[in-house]
Design a protein around this nucleic acid. Sequence first.
DNA 1: TGCGCTATATAACGCGATGTTATGAAGCTG
DNA 2: CAGCTTCATAACATCGCGTTATATAGCGCA
Lengths: 326, 326
Amino acid sequence: MKLDARHLELLAAVVEHGGLTEGAAALGKSQPSVSRTLGALEARVGQPLFVPGRRPLQPTDLGRSLAEQGAAILRASRAAGDTVDRYRHGRSGEVRIGGTPFFMDGVVSGMIAEFQMQNPDVRIRQSYDYAPDLMRQIAEGTLDLGICPVRPDTVPESFAFTPILAGRNVVACRKGHPLLTRRGVLTEEIFRYPWIAPPADSPLYADLKLTLAALGAQDFKIGFSGGTLASVFAILNGSDALTVLPYSVVFLTGRRNDIASLRIRINHPDRDLGLLRRRGADPSPATDRFRQFIETRFRQLSQVILHSEQIALWRGADDRPQRDRA
Amino acid sequence: MKLDARHLELLAAVVEHGGLTEGAAALGKSQPSVSRTLGALEARVGQPLFVPGRRPLQPTDLGRSLAEQGAAILRASRAAGDTVDRYRHGRSGEVRIGGTPFFMDGVVSGMIAEFQMQNPDVRIRQSYDYAPDLMRQIAEGTLDLGICPVRPDTVPESFAFTPILAGRNVVACRKGHPLLTRRGVLTEEIFRYPWIAPPADSPLYADLKLTLAALGAQDFKIGFSGGTLASVFAILNGSDALTVLPYSVVFLTGRRNDIASLRIRINHPDRDLGLLRRRGADPSPATDRFRQFIETRFRQLSQVILHSEQIALWRGADDRPQRDRA
DNA sequence: TGCGCTATATAACGCGATGTTATGAAGCTG
DNA sequence: CAGCTTCATAACATCGCGTTATATAGCGCA
């Protein structure tokens, strides 16, 4: 026998509230409506659902059993409603975010962690890619957000780009590196140390080449390449190798990983780190919420970086990277 | 947000069957109906439930979540339908049955056990009472069936009475009782043994008094009274006491409890053991099913009793109670 | 690339379930 | 027994949802 789920909900409400009138009130309906519908259900079932002629309307065994099923239906229905509500407020759902590996690992992951703590029901799918692939996937609709360095004026019309951080790089090394003890670093000295190269197709690798070329390098030793940020940190820690890293990565994770940056002035790429998303597509609420979270966190990060540099300036300290525009 | 349970069921069916058309078919509805309803649900939710422009209609995360709730609703709904079906066929529900204690314990309990094996979801509420109270409770509607000995012509019009067994009694004793070894028993001999008296208000007690009076007893020793059938068996087993019991009780449980009946002719009450129920009230299906079960079991029991007595007659054996009408 | 197939969306319409208010009947309670 | 409360019934309006017919849009294949 097939029963209407709404009839069972009705029955559950009436049984729970101990009366037709109360049940109807709880459901926001009139009493006759509930009465008639329950009558129809009873007729359909062919068995009394309430003991007849009892004034504080008392369900029969069968009525109680069916009411339990109705309560289950009501629960599921409410749960569905809640799911929708949370989804609409971005507190549940899925966000697919991709970005350049070192930046994701060094900066974004920490923010994701914080977001996860606040929104445990939002699933974050992270992937690693560079701008062209990110754009392709965003255009295809298989990715919600991209975080990577791009030149804002090269972003196609179909994308929205929000700059979140200046794309500055620094030369990074371990805390105890010989070059750090010196007051000043001669550019030719850095070529005596082995270099860690980011993946060949990464913008960071292009930056590395440009930087070193600008510093007058014809040739430099690549001692390691192909690893993730974690392995780069390990190599840096265990050797005197040098590499180029985004300033924000060193700023945020340098202390924890015993990494510092050389006090050496290097040119900076004319790219901004920013958030890419598809223009016109309305994103899932979770994506929106995540994006806003990320944007405010980066605003705060910019402030903190600026602040710390000003403190360093006032102190006259010099264990910070030299700023190009300072 | 309040969502219609039926919409969620619809969604569940569509997601499960992997398509609008199939889902509609599974629900026995037309495809446009399902399409429109799902469209309405999507509009209400305000979020896409299916990824747009995908041919093997693919649900979004939210769609899948809601479909799960819909599946839960569907399960509950089906469970409710099954409950009704089983209830209507008497395979679930409740039966309230009352009867005279010794007869319930000695005969009916075994049948209830068998019924329980076949109908595990039917709850049997058993109580003990004598005819007047049984009738009162049945009339009040607090009891479904009564099993007791009554004179059929004394049953009021408002009750239906189905005789199920002749109300014969026998004098019972333990298997090794001295009186059993004799070829014949003199009536005066039985008064030398202590007697177990059933409860004073029981019909059995009246039978006992009548029986013994008919046998010429002016006075007899009551050695024990007030116990249930189990205690009566225990007393019988551990002593040379005698008592009056329904023949069916001894027939069914005598062997197991090492009880036999004396070969002595006693008068039998002009009552029939039978089933009492309220006339006109339509009983719950479980009650009906149980009643029919009990009635057929008693028909079989009558046959078996008859059969065993004929065998005994043919054999010329005499270790059976003498039959009044033989 | 274009064609055909099939699945989905839309349109138009009828009906039945369910909402309403008004009112009657039936239990409980003092 | 009177009065109150609660449920059932009546009459009517409306909206959801069922139908069939038809347009549209992906997908597969040549």
